[in-house]
Amino acid sequence: MSQVHSLWKTASGLPVVGGVVGKRAFSIAFSQKAPYFASIHPRFTIIEPNHVELVIPKRRSVQNHIGTVHAIALCNGLEAAMGALAEVTIPKDKRWIPKGMEVAYTAKATSDITCVAETDQVQWDTADGDLAVRVKGVRDDGTVVIEGEIRLWVTPKSK
């Protein structure tokens, strides 16, 4: 189990506070690892191999000039979800780095946005180079507002 997955299980499983406070504490700690993530105030809700979800709260600091969640805030949320997914899914003998992102903005982001990152385990087990992580952002009413993929470069760890 990776450090990220272990921390998530510990924080979200704490008696009394695990459901809310533990997840929030994890989200803050994760954002400190890559401080730019803190700009969107992510709230992780699900972290498991091959599937991660987090919520970007719709607040003034992430809005654009028309009052919707800004496109780059959405991309930041997708990248945070992908990063957590990569950390909890990648085999111990491999490493990863982001290589590129391609997204389409499909609707206005007028509410909190749930960012989802997904892969299939076989992608990681057979990865030697490119690996595509499926990502999407969903409004409270279920409408997909952004979708695409983040490409990773996955290679064996140096010995």
Rank of each mutant, 00 (worst) to 15 (best):
A34L: 14
A84V: 05
A107R: 06
F26R: 00
N76F: 06
G77V: 10
P156C: 06
F37N: 13
S111A: 06
D128V: 10
R43S: 10
I66K: 09
C115V: 04
V21Y: 08
I72N: 14
R151K: 15
I72G: 14
V16S: 02
V154D: 06
A132I: 07
W8P: 01
V17F: 09
V4N: 05
S6F: 02
M1Q: 09
K99Q: 13
E149L: 02
S12T: 09
R43I: 10
V135K: 09
V4H: 03
S6P: 02
P91I: 04
I46C: 03
H70E: 13
D112M: 05
A73F: 12
S111G: 07
P91R: 03
V17E: 05
K157Y: 05
K23A: 12
N50I: 04
R60G: 11
T89R: 00
I97W: 03
A34D: 04
T155H: 07
V154G: 06
K108N: 15
L131N: 06
E53K: 11
R60L: 11
P35E: 13
K23N: 11
E102W: 09
L74C: 08
T119A: 10
Y105L: 08
A71V: 04
S6I: 02
F37Q: 12
I28G: 01
T89N: 03
T143E: 12
G13K: 03
